[in-house]
């Protein structure tokens, strides 16, 4: 049987490139985080508005919140279904998530203080996001450390043959 696949190994890897693209991974993480932060921000603004709002303003807030949710959904879908996050990516993504949570919480807290609206709900919601991001960061570091440890064990158990210069053969 001499039949061969049409794609060489190099061509196959090239075809897989979109799934491995760093830009796509960054886009996915960014969409998820900005979408989530935006949703929380818009919801806080909407909820914190004093007095009854006109219908058009309500509709605008609802629309903007829905747009942010859609971005969060798109980012989540990309990460779940389309873009693999390897151990190193997860560590980076978790730290970006932590930074985004802190920035969003700080911005909302400043806004709440300036408006004189309740700071406690903002800190509670922000704290939840920060805590979740911290848990993700700790888990990502632990997973990466476990993989590195396993790689070292395996490399010790099955050392690669030393590379020899062609002239030595």
């Amino acid at each position: 049987m001499t039949e061969e696949p049409r794609l060489s190994a190099r061509e196959l890897i090239e075809r897989l490139e979109p799934a491995l693209s760093r830009a796509r991974r960054i886009r996915a993480v960014t969409a998820l985080l900005t979408g989530l932060s935006g949703t929380v921000f818009m919801a806080a603004l909407w909820g914190g508005e004093p007095g009854p709002l006109p219908g058009r303003t309500q509709a605008m807030f609802a629309l903007l919140t829905a747009v942010c949710l859609a971005w969060a959904g798109y980012g989540g879908w990309l990460l779940m279904r389309r873009v693999p996050l390897f151990a190193a990516d997860r560590v980076i993504a978790a730290w970006i998530a932590l930074a985004a949570s802190l920035v969003t919480t700080a911005a909302l807290a400043v806004l709440a203080v300036r408006r004189g609206t309740g700071l406690a709900p903002v800190l509670a919601a922000g704290g939840l996001f920060v805590a979740t991001a911290l848990v993700l960061a700790v888990r990502a570091h632990a997973r990466r450390a476990a993989l590195l440890r396993r790689a070292r064990e395996l490399a010790r158990a099955h050392p690669s043959p030393p590379r020899t210069h062609p002239s030595e053969n």
Binding site: A87, L147, A151, L154, A155
Partner: peptide, 14 residues
């Protein structure tokens, strides 16, 4: 290099 080591290194992002 064993498959397992390759997989672990790939999972790390290599």
């Amino acid at each position: 290099m064993t498959d397992e080591l390759l997989v672990v290194r790939a999972q790390l992002g290599e």
